[in-house]
Amino acid sequence: MAPPAIEFKSVSKWFGTHQVLTDIDLAIAPGEVVVVCGPSGSGKSTLIRCVNGLEPFQRGDLVVLGESIGRPGVSMSALRTRVGMVFQSFNLFPHMTVLENITLAPVRVRGLSAAEAEKTARTLLERVRIPDKAENYPANLSGGQQQRVAIARALAMQPKIMLFDEPTSALDPEMINEVLDVMTDLAKEGMTMMVVTHEMGFARRVAHRVVFMDAGRVVEEATPEVFFAAAKSDRAKDFLSKILSH
């Protein structure tokens, strides 16, 4: 069996004296799609942000694509080129066109020529189904379109892992599916994905595994079938009853 793409080993993290992650042990295999869910404040966003070093942690070890994070000498910049991330608030650069947003990192970090980068960018825009928006500025796109550009931008670096931190939470309901569809395509293509989301339909259809967190701990992990049919812990049951009732 191939080594895990991401492996948390007893990771603990504190904000000041407040512990936000407690002894996290979690391994994600290459090509696996893991949905992380849990009530707000449970530490799920913090967890995912550890993977590309946006959050430092104080104890334990985290190995991403064979490299141990947080150890001196590990180049975070180099690692980040192989781990793409999509945020809740899109975070497109407002002063650049869609095309410029997507080609920025390939040109500046990977050293591609502008022409190559543009070619890739246009292909990616096809893939996220907005090829005609290349010259637009972010402000002229809908939320769903912006988030799809954000996904294309992350993919432009040809990452091995994609992190999604509540990618649909800031979207109007009618735009959620267009983003989830793109993510579903990506999952089908075999991308290793770690997704923090409340979209349980997506979890059920696409995820290989669901990780339920509460109070900074991984409380339960199971296949979606098992998790949704027969969650073991009371906290997971309680969470599911609230989130599925509406």
Partner: peptide, 27 residues
């Protein structure tokens, strides 16, 4: 400028200097 702009740029592999030069200062 929202802090997340900085994070988004860093997450793409840009160095802090590049983030300032290409994103933060121009905005």
């Amino acid at each position: 400028i929202p802090r997340t702009q900085f994070e988004a740029a860093v997450a793409m592999g840009l160095t802090t200097f590049q983030v300032y030069r290409l994103i933060i200062v121009p905005i």
